[in-house]
């Protein structure tokens, strides 16, 4: 048998390497944080927020599902899966999270057996789970088939799910997160400031000209905390409406009552604009978790 030339072999290896790199690049596009689009998804109530954090490579994937219900309840559900299409990975499960409508709980040994596989050149992640659900009459085996499909632009993740006990398919659409983690009930003002009061105080509304004593923690969109009065254990004091602070603060604190805790999302034009400032890059929107302690 005639030996292939070293040049051909090299070319072959290069081609394989290029394909592998392309596949790896495709898989890497699953990585990141994903926010559910409730309008395009099967209802998830009582949960009013769902996020996915995905870390994937050629051999495995980790899918962390964050569900939140108001301010009171949140749960994180982690699934680790080998993606060779064969290996069965056992994952512990405590609650059946998909609904509170039905009397269905996790049953059996409180484990789910999961297999994963990359399909279509890494554009689709298939995850199959087997577990026991406990209903009124006892345990019942259930097989769940899910496909995580990435859009061509890499910004939309659609999860199709089928359960052996249910005729209706479920669809969940997620968008890549490139913005702050925001509480429910955010309000946008005419200037573009976004805010939500996360705990109501009982004091009076802050007024321009008053000296405010506040606590705050500021973060960038990537989660970097750039400043915090709480970390310094020293409240910050300024006069409201006198341009002693960024415009987003003058506007935002004028919306608060003493005792209020709130989240302010300040667009760059109401913060530092095109100017970089210390750890804050130019054109950065800023998130502040604030508390109005006193107004004199």
């Amino acid at each position: 048998m005639k030996m292939k030339s070293p040049r051909l072999l090299a070319a072959g290896f290069l081609a394989l390497a290029l394909v592998a790199t392309a596949a790896a690049d495709t898989l890497a596009r699953f990585n990141g944080h994903w926010q559910i689009d409730l309008a395009k998804s099967t209802p998830i109530r009582p949960w009013n927020e769902a996020r996915l954090d995905i870390k994937a490579d050629a051999d495995s994937a980790q899918i962390v599902r964050h569900l939140r219900w108001g301010l009171e309840r949140k749960v994180d559900d982690t699934t680790n899966v080998k993606t060779d299409g064969h290996t069965v990975t056992a994952n512990p499960v405590g609650y059946w999270l998909d609904t509170w409508y039905t009397n269905v709980y996790i049953g059996g040994d409180h484990q789910k057996q999961v297999t994963g596989e990359w399909l279509d050149g890494g554009r689709v992640l298939k995850v199959e789970s087997r577990l026991a659900l406990e209903a009124q009459q006892g345990d019942h085996p259930v097989h769940i088939y899910e496909e995580y499909r990435l859009s061509p632009d890499g910004n939309t993740l659609t999860v199709f799910a089928l359960r052996s006990t249910r005729d209706q398919a479920m669809t969940y659409v997620f968008h890549r997160i490139s913005k702050f983690d925001e509480p429910a009930g955010m309000v946008t003002t005419a200037s573009g400031l976004r805010y939500a009061i996360t705990r109501q105080g009982t004091g009076p509304l802050a007024k321009p000209g008053q000296i405010l004593t506040v606590h705050y923690t500021g973060t960038l969109v990537d989660g970097t905390q750039f400043d915090s009065s709480r970390s310094r254990q020293t409240p910050y004091i300024f006069t409201l409406g006198r341009r002693q602070v960024i415009p987003g603060w003058d506007e935002g604190f004028a919306l608060l009552h003493v005792g209020d805790q709130a989240v302010l999302i300040v667009p760059p034009e109401l913060a530092y604009g095109k100017t970089a400032r210390g750890p804050i890059p130019a054109n950065s929107p800023l998130k502040f978790e604030v508390e109005l302690l006193e107004a004199k």
Binding site: P43, R45, T102, A135, H140, T165, Q168
Partner: peptide, 20 residues
């Protein structure tokens, strides 16, 4: 607020999870 089709699917699933 739950759409009727989802409710029907929920109830049908309950009947299958409880076969007796």
């Amino acid at each position: 607020h739950r759409p009727q089709a989802d409710v029907v699917a929920d109830l049908d699933e309950l009947m299958r999870l409880n076969p007796v």
